[in-house]
Computed example of a mutant assay.
Amino acid sequence: MLIYTNDPAMKNILSENGENLFSIEKSENFSLETPIQLSQYLIILIHKGEGIYHADFASFNFSGPTLLFSTPLQTIYIEQLKNIEYTVLKFHGDFYCIEAHREEVACNGLLFNNIYLEPSIIISEQQHNDFNKLLLHLEEELADPHSSEMILKAYLQVILAKCSTAKLRTMEKDIVTTSKDEKMEQFRILLDEKYLILRKPNDYAQILSISPNTLTKKSIKYFGKTPTQLIQDRLILEAKKQLHLTTRSIKEIAYLLQFNDEHYFSRFFKKYTQISPQTFRNKGGISQVAYLSK
């Protein structure tokens, strides 16, 4: 149902239990200066200004115009803000399931839920104008009491698809201008294959025939993270996937991820996300795709 507030920048679509499913908010009404955890996906269009964007334990500098992204219940904030203006588009998985629309938008694992890529896109002034116009049209739809969720979802789908296309083009340019580190590409493949059984950087260094110190230096330079961070991030990413995209119990997920018991898994998950697995599932919900095969 559509819920309107007095502030035009804060119009929302809420679920029956009051969860914010969809909204557009402005920098003057929505602060990112202190760490927050939200149950929605975020697309942050930076109109101008600069700062340092933190998403969980990763951070990087940015300047506008640019696009920043956040997955549900990441701890995010921006520090050292300078003359910054932005618009935030928030949507919950219960409003629009990116996994169910993988073919249309192809953003899962690209804009969201990727431990190797910075969750950002540097955009041109023309791209900024295009994205800003789409957001303005969305605001107009939210202001219209006769608007439908179908129209809002259509606009959201276009924005996500355009973001995915822009990200892919940026990556293609990076391939041309940046030399590829074959050892780190091997590490990426190895980590995705072995993260359940190999939990120490030394294990990967041995297979790659390099010293642990060299692995750490190369990983920081190439991915912006240490091998330990990447191993932890990969485990957490899979845990979130299981909690959101399946109906498995916490105990079953702990067993699947090869933890000794569900209590150890819960402590590990909370250490790196600040919330328990059950709270993550309660706030993020179970995706509709979890029930498709039932």
Score class of each variant (00 low, 15 high):
H101V: 04
H92V: 05
H54E: 11
I52L: 12
R102P: 03
G93Y: 06
F95D: 00
K48V: 06
I98T: 04
K26I: 03
F62N: 03
I76H: 11
S59V: 02
K48Q: 13
E103F: 15
F69M: 05
E28N: 05
P72E: 10
A100D: 15
F62R: 04
L42T: 03
G93R: 10
L68I: 09
I52N: 10
V88R: 00
Y77D: 10
T66W: 02
F95S: 03
L45C: 00
S63V: 09
H101A: 12
S59E: 13
Q80H: 14
I46Y: 05
I44T: 10
F91H: 08
P65C: 05
D56F: 12
E79K: 15
D94G: 14
S59R: 11
E28D: 07
E33A: 12
E28P: 00
S63Y: 12
I52E: 11
E104R: 08
Q40Y: 06
F57R: 12
Y86I: 02
H101C: 09
E33G: 14
T75G: 12
K48N: 09
E104S: 11
L32R: 13
G64W: 02
S27G: 05
L67R: 01
I78F: 10
E50Q: 09
A100M: 14
L67I: 06
F60T: 07
T87Q: 05
L42P: 00
Y53P: 06
G64I: 01
E104C: 08
F95N: 00
H92D: 03
V88C: 02
E33P: 00
P65S: 02
T75A: 13
T87P: 02
P65I: 04
T87H: 01
V105I: 13
H54T: 12
N61K: 14
E28M: 01
S39N: 13
N83R: 08
H47T: 08
F69S: 09
L68V: 07
Y77N: 14
R102N: 14
N61E: 14
Y96K: 05
I84F: 13
L45S: 00
E28H: 07
Y96R: 03
I78L: 11
F91K: 04
G93K: 10
R102Q: 14
